[in-house]
């Protein structure tokens, strides 16, 4: 963890209000971008609110928590808040880009309800086993919600190549879960 995060965490621990403002300065744009990707670019008010809710959660959970790195914790908190907000909004607002990603991913990581709690361990293990670029593409697409075009631009690939690689990674994930008795083909659905 960098010194800056230590500084921010110290502010939270001192209950110093600058903690939130400083977090906004460091990670505000990153957070807003993440929230907008989940909620849709035309839903900035909701995205801003989710970011603020995430800051509030940080304020309330630090201390006693001292998450390292702070950015990852903040991002995970925000992602859940934004997905929850998307869930509430979806009847009246859609985000095709997100929905496309969710529907791509869902069949590959289907597990029974009872096993959903274990997914985070399984997914972490699965991701560690992937080649680095493959993991980055997968996490970029399904964790951060980047568009295929953006990933292609960033990694110097064609969009078609990104799509194919993501498809192969999803197949690997399905096989991984099946091998461990969780996946679609090994449970009574």
């Amino acid at each position: 963890m960098n010194d800056r995060d230590e500084y921010l965490l110290d502010l939270y621990f001192k209950r110093d209000e600058r903690a939130v403002a400083e977090t906004q300065r460091d990670y505000g744009s990153f957070c807003l971008d993440l929230a907008l990707r989940i909620l849709g670019r035309d839903n900035r008010p909701d995205a801003e609110e989710c970011v603020n809710d995430a800051y509030l959660k940080l304020w309330r959970t630090i201390p006693p928590r001292r998450p390292k790195p702070l950015k990852a914790y903040l991002a995970a908190v925000l992602r859940n808040i934004a997905i929850d907000r998307y869930r509430q909004n979806r009847r009246r607002a859609e985000n095709r880009e997100l929905e496309e990603a969710i529907l791509e991913l869902s069949p590959a990581m289907w597990v029974p309800d009872s096993a959903e709690g274990e997914l985070k361990y399984l997914l972490s293990d699965f991701l560690r086993k992937l080649p680095e670029e493959e993991r980055r593409l997968f996490v970029g697409r399904y964790w951060h919600g980047y568009a295929v075009g953006d990933l292609a631009q960033h990694y110097g690939l064609t969009p078609n190549a990104v799509t194919k690689r993501l498809g192969r990674t999803r197949e690997k994930l399905r096989d991984y879960l099946n091998e461990r008795g969780y996946g679609y083909e090994t449970t009574n659905r």
Binding site: Y73, A75, A76, N80, I102, W110, L123, Y142, W143
Partner: peptide, 16 residues
């Protein structure tokens, strides 16, 4: 299922 990705280990996220 999509949300469950949020909980993967943090070191797997940021470099992406």
């Amino acid at each position: 299922l999509y949300a469950s990705l949020s909980d993967v280990d943090s070191d797997l996220i940021l470099d992406s």
